[in-house]
Design a protein around this nucleic acid. Structure first.
Lengths: 179, 179
DNA sequence: CCTGAAGACTTCAATACTAAAGTTCGATCC
DNA sequence: GGATCGAACTTTAGTATTGAAGTCTTCAGG
């Protein structure tokens, strides 16, 4: 009986059209594919970094510290902003990561309200290993696309990104008119 | 001091290249844009449904019940599988939603081990309202792309999706988040 | 029937997160 | 040069989720 598996994308879009008349199937196809793809990718990343003994949450922190460039230091507040977490959550996450030796947490000498989270060598090594696995996965993922297609895909995604960044929904739930 | 804001996509890719030599910038551009776009979209969806007084978590449940077609019924286990949650989490989520009147929870008459979660009229109405806002947002998002571009984008995304699904055939996995 | 096994959910204990209040330090004002 | 405000982080209380153990029902054998 319960062999109900997740519907395919096309089935899903057909179902939406049955339930919601004025739906543009082309738009829905793009949006649904985007969502599903991202979900699958996140699962894949999670599995990969788990092999290194870290969670995706920890991987995210390592990533942003590395992105900040040498000497790989950021404050908890800044990290929280970039990761989309509350500062409180960051406090605890850093606790765990410091206990595992991935980062250090110290008071700023010059301003003792501030805290400096710094990548350890071990943390940097973990990031490198994770990065190697991630890029291998990503290149494999894009393998079927030609160089031209990759370029076109990247450009279109960036155009969407710009639109979403410059036109966040306001309190009325609408996108602001841009032009 | 540090008014460090999140780096732009190009800055981020440049930073990656400094820290990790053999990186294909084109691949990274696609992947990073995908990730960012999805995050921004999820935040936007969350804000929108919050105006209706529901969380994105609840919206996801409504969505899958609607997608199942009339009479809009699914078991907790099936819902958990589709949403990428554990059955335990589903139990609690349904508790809340039943208390709010979005769904009903009843034992199956024919098999009293099973439970049937069914959409209420109120739940269906909420979904419709959310859907109206979501599709408006999505159409706005894609506004800058021509019909041909939308088609090309959708096709490429689906090719990536197939690749990722083939590469990791449902390994007992829970898939995170929405779609 | 009665027993054992499997399935579908629930309960329980522990973890991670959020919002809000609290703490501590630094900066500004007069 | 103290009083006050604000910034950066932590603590607290409450909620959502997970993994593991538990409950109840059905089904298949003996």
């Amino acid at each position: 009986m319960s062999d109900t598996q997740e519907p395919s994308l096309d089935e899903q879009i057909a179902a939406y059209q049955r339930e919601f008349r004025d739906l543009d199937p082309q738009v829905e196809k793009v949006v649904s594919a985007l969502g599903r793809l991202n979900r699958r990718m996140n699962v894949a990343y999670g599995r990969q970094v788990a092999e290194l003994g870290i969670s995706s949450a920890e991987w995210e922190v390592l990533k942003h510290l590395v992105l900040s460039g040498a000497p790989y230091r950021l404050g908890p507040g800044e990290l929280a902003k970039r990761l989309g977490l509350t500062p409180a959550a960051m406090t605890h996450r850093i606790d765990r990561m410091a206990a595992e030796g991935l980062v250090t947490r110290d008071r700023d000498e010059n301003n003792r309200v501030r805290v400096i989270v710094e990548l350890t060598d071990e943390g940097r090594t973990k990031w490198l290993e994770a990065m190697r696995m991630a890029t291998a996965f990503e290149e494999d993922l894009l393998q079927d696309l030609s160089t031209d297609e990759r370029g076109a895909l990247g450009d279109m995604l960036i155009r969407l990104l710009r639109r979403v960044e410059h036109a966040q929904p306001d309190a009325g739930g609408r996108l602001k008119d841009l032009d």
